[in-house]
Write a protein that binds this DNA or RNA. Sequence first.
RNA 1: GUUCCUGUAGCGUAAUCGGAUAACGCAAUCGCCUCCUAAGCGAUAGACUGUGAGUUCAAUUCUCAUCAGGAACGCCA
Length: 544
Amino acid sequence: MIEEILKQLKDNLNKIIKEMGVTEDLDIFFDVPKDSSFGDYSTNISMRLTKILKKNPILIANEIKSKLDLTKNHLEKCEVAGQGFLNFFLDKKYLMQVVFQILQEKENYGSSNYGQNKKINIEFVSANPTGYLHIGHCRGAAYGDSLARIYQKVGYNVSREHYVNDGGNQIHHLTNSIYARYQELFGIEITLDKEAYHGKEIIEIAKNIKDEVNDKYLHEEWYDYFCNYGVNYLLNGLKKDLKDFNVTFDTWFSEKSLYDSGAVKKTLEFLKEKGYTYEKDNALWLKTTIYGDEKDRVLVKSDGTLTYFTPDIAYHANKLSRGFAHLIDVLGADHHGYISRLKAAIAYVGGDPDLIDVEILQMVRVIQNGEEIKMSKRSGKAITMRDLIDEVGTDALRFMFVSKSLSTHMDLDLDLAVKQSNENPVYYVQYAYARIASLFRNLKQPFKQVNSFKHIDINKFNRIILTLLQYPQVIIEAATKRIPHKVCQYALNLASVFHSYYNDEKIITDNEEEVNEKLTILKAVQIVIQDALKLLGVGVKEEM
RNA sequence: GUUCCUGUAGCGUAAUCGGAUAACGCAAUCGCCUCCUAAGCGAUAGACUGUGAGUUCAAUUCUCAUCAGGAACGCCA
């Protein structure tokens, strides 16, 4: 609804400035001013026209204003203010219609066809199956999943993907680590090399195997069994943890499958044939510098084995072959040097490097007792996602991670996080929903939805209505800029205007018509709160 | 040394394509339940946006320099 109003206003303003002698095509845009006394929407167009028209911006603004038809544009008034802003005050009565739109569209309110059903692939988390998920994965999971939900909402055909590194060296170390722990359970003295994994989950796996087969593999060929058992066990744990974090994937893509299908070999042959590679020091290199990488990269090491990069090229070629219009990889800050390499790889396998966007999330540092805990799977020192979900809860965790922009360097103080989980802003939003639910429960007579507002003071609902109107645009902005935290801010804002209204007037009175009108509006608020939280992977509560 | 990210009130963050008096939460002070959930509301106080230049009618936002913190610079993954 607001889209149409603003589009019409924009068209009319364009017409007016053409009449005033502007030949250039200028994109007129509107801001929501911080201060409501500056109107509901404002534009800076007259300031931008000063150079072209060689006139004082205030004069230009006044001329535009005099030519603008208020009623046709659903405007109450238009003011010239500051250095030449045009401030628009919308016709509140007309805007009330948005309530009926929301009640009709329900959870589809705010959806759009912006993405035109284009296929888009979002790869995130992509944790190695060599241990449990830890805190850093939470951030990527919360971000990636919310981003996916937002993209879906604005009309993209989204595929969530998790790459499983089950083909490389680390699986070998994992297998050996489990076997060592298995031997240990039979009193055999073991030494773990520095590549070994030390997490408690390794010992758990060894115990499980012992429970199932006892000492069988002390005497028989054990490698494949331990390898499969370990990877499956960890992968299932990973899936469960993510599911409890409200994150599911459409595709779990196995690295190993790229070897099995011959895709890695084929990619390598392709790159060689095309002459994109060369041999040096007994290794095979890819000329990634041509695409702006700072140095060329090794594909085949001098010992004949492949680097991590090689199957990854095959992987991204595979993604392209599945017809995605756009690829998004969410990676940790430690991978930032990998971006140019990846873009070069995409170019070499026939894609446009701009097809892929890499979102880098800055590291989460964990602080306990005032000191940073260095986490690593190898050392086994890690705060797992499971621990966090159990202690802080999914709702609070997801809100906490996704409410900050990706580029902030987060310090997570564990003691504080647990202690403060009750103060998490997510409850503020959930509470708004629960309060409305409670109003409906307290009604003496059944609620009847109205289809016009005659008995209430609509001025009391100005802020609520304006906030409801902004929802579709907030989501589009969150999607195009890939900033889910925008939705958090919005949810908090909507909850705030509701709480404020709630305290301002008694909602349930003896006047039945009035009550029904108020609750019709609040029903719409509830729908939007629920939907915004859903985009963040957070649920609502009927009671708190 | 090179590359990426960050620096905003005591703390944690936000700020739309550069816009008006830099916003929100926590912490602090004061006020608000005979009444629909006080996990709430209202108010006060708190910021030379790390520093210095530049571009602009306008800079937290863009450019350069500089300081501080984090991350990466493998034939690891």
